[in-house]
Design a protein around this nucleic acid. Structure first.
Lengths: 237, 237
DNA sequence: ACTTTTATGTGGCTTTGCGCCACTATATCA
DNA sequence: TGATATAGTGGCGCAAAGCCACATAAAAGT
């Protein structure tokens, strides 16, 4: 694996000549279903870990994927039908013990999607299901996927506390109360109504629509997010 | 690569049977030399990209490294003699065009070290040099390493703005002015003296020593960091 | 010696924005 | 028509940031 001249390199270089770890991409796809935070999981239909719950993911397709982010988006589209999620790389975990097949590396992403956008078009592959965080806690999972979920969940809460990415679990139109509830669930703590509204409005993140949402009680004004680009608050929630 | 039974899996599984990308670890090691932010670079002695400047890094040693973080620490120790830096994973970049050898994945870390701790013990391998950010801007570099530096630099500035990791480029004892200067360089913007001191002192991050640093002007009190664990500010600098 | 220069460290006022919670507004339902 | 439910606001107190002049303490200049 040592080449002093270009000729030597070109002639002798063989990617399979040295040991390489397995490389995979895993996804933690979050959404809100009836004000409950859910994660998409699949049941593995193959060895190793056949029958166990696992995060959607798998190997990079070197022929069709040109970046690892593409791999992640492909898997996501595959399982949910969603094309443009909020997608963020969480971390890469690599060690010799996480996979029985030997040294393995996985790059973990998390995605936020509005449940309204999910199409139940999971034709191929393993059966999908949406697990609540309570289900996650009590379920047994393949590989180190429980730890991966913990990492993703922590990153999510952290990121929601100082950015506006929480918008991405909501449909296009929403009320400020729905927005606040979404943030509260993602953060896992309550927020003060006045402060929350003051911030969202003064940061100019939403535009008020000429529509109202009428449920019980006083109708609420509907809003839409102004930008898809994440906004960073100078102060955390 | 598809196994319906465990037996089938155990008999037929061969890690080299399917295409895998190259996997590397790269490091962006930051330090402060005379109030100037520097990055450690090496000159490649082998193909590909022989002769070009590159970030220290390389392949995971599957035999000796048990995690990728160990790989990163090994490389760092190797180049600087530093054993316990502040080390943080920035991102993993994987695509088919970044390395002439084909599909390749690299996990990028950044490290913060006090220059006082660096031992010029770079016996083996390529020649190291410390580049200032201006040098980085005008130098030609191997692979996509210039972009990797940009990523690391951005993450660094961002993280310094809401944590106290800036402490890690300073020696054990420092004055509050030195601390402020370090933060200013890492953030790339000026800070207000009174506010900065108020925050550092009220957050209880430092303890005052019974010593003073006498240069020009009034002698300054020396301080030491109280903890190695990063502290998160609720408000960014 | 004493004045100037240089740098450390603080006093104190203004401004900003969060926490709090009572109060008003507008709908449905009995 | 009044009870209930939810949306949305008024307004005060407080904590911390921004600002900048001033006091302090040493070295260097004359």
């Amino acid at each position: 694996m040592s080449y002093q001249t270009e000729k030597e390199f070109l002639i002798h270089y063989d990617p399979k000549a040295f040991d390489a770890p397995l490389v995979t991409v895993d996804l933690c796809i979050f959404t809100l279903i009836e004000n409950d935070l859910k994660i998409l999981m699949v049941k593995r239909s193959q060895f190793p870990e056949k029958g166990k719950l696992a995060l959607p993911g798998g190997f990079i397709d070197l022929a069709t994927d040109s970046t690892i982010e593409e791999t992640a988006l492909r898997k996501l589209l595959n399982k949910t039908g969603v094309k443009s999620p909020y997608l963020e790389q969480v971390a890469t975990i690599g060690n010799k013990s996480r996979d029985p097949r030997g040294w393995s590396v996985t790059t973990l992403y998390f995605a936020l999607i509005p449940y309204e956008d999910v199409i139940g078009a999971n034709e191929v592959g393993d059966a999908v299901q949406w697990l609540s965080m309570e289900d996650v806690a009590i379920s047994s999972m393949a590989f180190d996927h429980k730890e991966l979920i913990k990492l993703a969940r922590e990153r999510l809460a952290n990121k929601v506390s100082y950015t506006d990415i929480g918008f991405h679990v909501l449909p296009e139109k929403f009320t400020l109360t729905q927005l606040q509830q979404a943030f509260e669930i993602l953060l896992d703590h309550k927020l003060e109504k006045k402060s929350f509204r003051r911030r969202m409005l003064s940061a100019d993140l939403v535009k008020e629509l000429d529509e109202v949402s009428a449920e019980r009680g006083r109708p609420a004004a509907l809003y839409a997010a102004k930008s898809k680009q994440p906004h960073f608050f100078t102060r955390s929630l």
